[in-house]
């Protein structure tokens, strides 16, 4: 069962319901599906968490995942991971889940929609100044845009925007192209080869999730680490 035509690039184009500007498209539906899956899965696994030394396999997997994300955050930011963990972790898990579920027949990854990747990139774009301001205050955060000179302000703003755009387009391009290539190959050579590409697509999807999350963390870290360089004494006191 395929919701999308081969000519349709984005799942946004598959609309189930529309009322004025309010549309219920395939992207939103599958996003909800992924959300439900993740939330229910998390609830099921975490409802009986063991605090003893012997734990279940699922708990073990989740702990490995959470610890891995935590370690990555700590390595990149050189700060305590607790503050950034929910945001970066949700980004990674959501994108990874969206991409890995492409093995399910009829499923179209929400990340193959530029609207989704743009939404995620916007979230990162907004979160960077939020974490930066929370970390060092509004004045100090804004000051970094005129570093090293005030003439760098437009370039810094352009840099912020372009990297956000790059985030959105990179993820969208990779996932969309992957699914389209598989769909085209499935029509031309229906045996073996599409499966291999599908597996490759899973790997690519996982890597893209990792890249997205790591880049988001790098951006946040760059916004929060300036404070360390400018005022290390204050950071030590925290």
């Amino acid at each position: 069962m395929n919701f999308m035509d081969i000519k349709q690039i984005s799942p946004d184009q598959v609309v189930f319901f529309q009322y004025h500007f309010i549309t219920l498209n395939l992207t939103i539906v599958f996003t909800w599906a992924v959300m439900v899956l993740l939330v229910i899965g998390s609830w099921l696994v975490t409802r009986r968490l063991s605090t003893e030394q012997k734990i279940s396999s699922w708990q073990n997997i989740l702990e490995i995942l959470v610890t891995g994300i935590q370690d990555q955050i700590s390595e990149i930011s050189r700060q305590k991971a607790k503050r950034y963990m929910p945001f970066i972790g949700t980004l990674f898990i959501f994108i990874a889940a969206c991409n890995l579920l492409t093995v399910v027949p009829g499923y179209e990854s929400p990340t193959a929609s530029l609207s989704t990747t743009a939404a995620l990139a916007i979230c990162v774009f907004i979160s960077v100044p939020l974490f930066g301001i929370a970390q060092k205050g509004l004045g100090r955060y804004l000051k970094q845009y005129i570093q090293p000179t005030v003439f760098m302000l437009p370039f810094n703003i352009m840099g912020e925007l372009s990297r956000t755009l790059a985030l959105a387009v990179r993820l969208f391009g990779n996932i969309m192209s992957g699914s389209k290539i598989v769909a085209i190959l499935l029509a031309i050579i229906p045996f073996v080869f599409p499966v291999i590409l599908q597996l490759l697509g899973l790997l690519t999807g996982l890597i893209q999730a990792y890249i997205f999350a790591v880049l988001a963390m790098v951006y946040i870290a760059s916004a929060t680490q300036i404070q360390e360089q400018s005022d290390p004494q204050k950071d030590d006191n925290q």
């Binding site: 946004d12 500007f21 309010i22 549309t23 498209n25 992207t27 939103i28 996003t31 909800w32 959300m35 993740l38 939330v39 998390s42 609830w43 975490t46 968490l49 063991s50 605090t51 708990q59 989740l62 702990e63 959470v66 607790k82 963990m85 929910p86 945001f87 972790g89 949700t90 898990i93 959501f94 929400p110 929609s113 609207s115 989704t116 743009a118 939404a119 995620l120 916007i122 979230c123």
Partner: peptide
């Protein structure tokens, strides 16, 4: 609209995963 909806969806997911996953796992 989808962008806005996805932002909201992401924020909801963030809150839910924080409650049902990260906090619990961290606590455990």
């Amino acid at each position: 609209f989808t962008v806005g909806a996805q932002v909201v969806n992401f924020l909801i997911l963030l809150v839910l995963l924080k409650i049902f996953l990260f906090d619990r796992i961290k606590q455990a």
